[in-house]
Every structure is written in C-alpha cells, then in structure tokens.
C-alpha cells in the first residue's frame, strides 16, 4: 500500500486532509441530491431567475472556494514539507 509519510507523521495535515475529504464528499452529495431532483425540480424562481441557475453557478464557485481553501490548508503546506524533507520513504507493499 502506498504510504504518504508526510500525512502519516503530521497530525495537523492529516486532520486537514480529512477535512478536505469531508467537504468534498459533502459537495458531491449535495450535487447528486440536486441532480436527482431534490432541489430545482419544481421550477422555483428567485427574483425571476430559476433556482437551477443559482445552483449551477453556486456549484462552480463553491468548487473554486473549496480548491482555494484546500490549497491553503493542505496542498501547499504538504508540498513544502515534502520537498523540504526530500521524502524518499514511500513504499509499495
């Protein structure tokens, strides 16, 4: 199994990794619920604009927000730590 030594050693980063995973799972779940018609199936409108339009732009911008957040708390610090250690301990089985 491929082990990421940085995430195994750094508890804060491991916690942030879980956070990002949960937010991503939530994002996917809400999107799937929308796609199966839980939201937007009745043709609701807000200020004359269909709810589905708000939803679609909402999904795009929340994706971008999540990516920026994940980069700040996880991707960037992980990469800095990894390159600093020049990690060569990852192993396969």
């Amino acid at each position: 199994m491929i082990k990421d030594q940085i995430l195994s050693q750094d508890k804060e980063l491991a916690c942030n990794n879980k956070k990002v995973a949960y937010y991503f799972a939530l994002y996917v779940a809400v999107m799937v619920l929308t796609m199966v018609g839980v939201l937007g199936a009745e043709g609701q409108e807000i200020a004359g604009i269909p709810l589905t339009i708000y939803l679609i732009f909402g999904f795009i911008f929340s994706f971008l927000a999540l990516a920026v957040y994940a980069h700040k708390i996880l991707f960037k610090p992980w990469a800095e730590k990894f390159d600093a250690q020049d990690n060569s301990n990852s192993s396969i089985r």
Partner: peptide, 9 residues
Amino acid sequence: AKDFAQSIY
C-alpha cells in the same frame, strides 16, 4: 511535490 500541488490549484 510543490509542482504537483500547485498544478491542481
């Protein structure tokens, strides 16, 4: 690793 992570961003 920085290149990998930054490319996602």
